[in-house]
Nucleic acid binder design. Structure first.
Lengths: 142, 142
DNA sequence: TCAACTCACTTGCAAAATGCAAGTAGAAAA
DNA sequence: TTTTCTACTTGCATTTTGCAAGTGAGTTGA
């Protein structure tokens, strides 16, 4: 797999800026949430698994970007040639702490749903992250 | 302290979505970085303290949104009536772990600058976050 | 005290991103 | 072999972003 040098330059060398350029939009992190926590792996699963109803063209664009940035990979399902199976790379898996902190922050300061998940994160944050990473790493291996 | 109910509805009750709706754009987190790590507190400081060169209208808009969302507050400088001093609220301060994880993630997977900061975060993440929070909390008190 | 300067914006406009509805191509099922 | 499923693309209207040039209130120096 050739390493494609991205056409556009970063606005700055700051690491936070790098994260923002890869993830700072209204959809990318929600797609990653669906992969990490809801087990979504295909295009239609992404369309159906989320409350937020992403448009099909935006979804296609975000999947392309996440793949370009090395956060996910795509390969066709061997049992059904129509399906593309998207998988988190190690880089993608390593976003688990970011997602977790964002969930905990919003849960603390906003009225949000999914309280069982939040309880679990609060009780044992490190354990929760480790469990998620472990589960995702196993998918990587297959 | 009136609690203003925001005009627009959330796309979903998911806490991650709440975070994304408040912070998921190309500038908000960079503004918060400048406040947390570079001590920026006024409009011109934001314009000058970052490499990324935000446009003035976007900066004004983002400051308004961050204030609306209770992440920062603004008050006029008592020693210079032209200046508005922006301060992180507790809600804003509580974003320190999110910023930290995003920095660590990018630093691990991308070529980025500011290695001393990253070393410090890696060596003692909890300590780093505690120190940042502590410093910012003191500004809150004044 | 008043002209020059600073500060925090606003305005106007072009370009890019987003969102919606409809369409399409290839693979699988009936 | 027709129909259905899957992963998109296309066209177009709306919204957001970005750039350059103002503006108006507060401050400073002569």
């Amino acid at each position: 797999m050739k390493k494609k040098r991205s056409a556009r330059e970063r606005r700055s060398p700051c690491p936070l800026n790098a994260s923002v350029e890869m993830l700072g939009d209204r959809w990318s992190l929600l797609i990653l949430r669906d992969m990490m926590l809801r087990g979504a792996r295909t295009y239609t699963e992404f369309l159906n698994s989320s409350f937020e109803k992403i448009a099909t063209n935006i979804l296609a664009d975000r999947l392309r970007r996440l793949e370009r940035d090395g956060i996910i990979t795509a390969k066709t399902d061997p049992t059904d040639g129509r399906k593309l199976i998207y998988t988190l790379t190690q880089k993608g898996i390593d976003l688990a702490p970011v997602l977790t902190e964002m969930v905990l922050w919003a849960a603390k300061h906003e009225r949000t749903g999914n309280q069982p998940l939040i309880q679990q994160m609060r009780q044992d944050k490190e354990g929760f992250i480790a469990a998620v990473k472990d589960r995702l790493a196993k998918q990587l291996g297959t």
